[in-house]
Amino acid sequence: MTRVDLAHLVAVRTRHPEAVAEAAARRRRRPLLGDGGRLMIVAADHPGRGALGVGDRPLAMANRLDLLERVCLALSRPGVDGVLATADVLDDLLLLGALEGKVVMGSMNRGGLAGAAFELDDRFTGHRAQDLARSGFDAGKLLLRIDYDDPGSLATLHAAARTVDEMAAHRLPVFVEPFLCRRHGGRVANDLSAPAVSTAIAIASGLAGTSAYTWLKVPVTENPDDMDRALAASTLPAVLLGGDTGDDQDATYEKWRGALRLPTVQGLVAGRSLLYPRDGDVAAAVDTAVGLL
């Protein structure tokens, strides 16, 4: 694992907070899509809404030093284009020099805390479009979960539309991650059936006054053979989201492999499955995912 000097990081944050903006200003940037025309992004924004668990480990992502070391290792692997994270994580990575020549994607709405009664009133408590533009970051991501029985979904839907408008005004790509969902026993569960994924994609594609800068971040349907039918709902470019692979990581890789062949799919954004693989080998998990592209 790549080692991070925690004492030095804290010392810089304590004595020279301006170092974050300075590192952002001098960061070497790159186009969203590289020469290969595919996108491989590591996601590390889960802690920002209190989602710390991976598999049967409820606090797997609670150790920030461990998380940073895993992300730095993932970013160092060939074929990894960049990272998706909240401001605190991205600030750390800037200070560590880990974002040079990488795509930096800010996580925008983290107010829908995991397990909260207000989870689906998912406020935009993370990056704003103006924050991403000021820092010279390359894209934003928003989560759009819709429960037809929960009035909070309407507030999130409205806020998401206005955020897409704001990102377009800055000519910044925004990755919309849409789900139809429902509460079961007090917990929010995403519907991954083909009709639900297709409907969510259609709703997300129609947000705001323009879709010119909108990308989709979509799950593989529960039946992978239905993925082409679900993605037929939009012409917007899409990336697959990773999620937790559970016990059968190889089966998850095969689902990704099939979906990555579809014409609108441009890449993969995966987090827990690569940063916390069952066998603990982050480099091997990342390399396998890169190989699927």
Rank of each mutant, 00 (worst) to 15 (best):
A230K: 15
E119T: 08
A168M: 00
G206P: 02
A155H: 11
A168K: 02
D138K: 01
A194S: 11
P224E: 03
S234D: 03
M108S: 11
V197K: 10
A200E: 00
V174T: 01
F118A: 15
R171Y: 00
D225A: 15
R182C: 03
A161H: 02
W215V: 04
A168V: 07
L143F: 11
A117H: 06
M227L: 09
I201S: 11
A114V: 13
M108Q: 11
H158D: 12
L172C: 00
S107M: 11
R123E: 06
G115I: 02
R134M: 09
D226S: 03
S153V: 06
H184T: 14
S135H: 11
N223T: 13
N190I: 02
D150T: 06
G136H: 10
M105I: 13
I203S: 10
M105K: 08
G206V: 03
D225V: 12
L231K: 12
E166T: 04
P151W: 01
M108N: 08
R182L: 12
Y148C: 13
R187I: 01
V188Y: 04
A169V: 09
Q130T: 14
E177P: 05
I201W: 04
F179D: 11
D150A: 05
I201K: 06
A160I: 01
A233M: 09
A114K: 15
N223R: 15
M227Y: 10
D149G: 09
R182T: 10
V174R: 08
A129H: 02
H170I: 01
Q130S: 14
G112R: 13
D165F: 00
R162F: 08
A189L: 14
M167D: 03
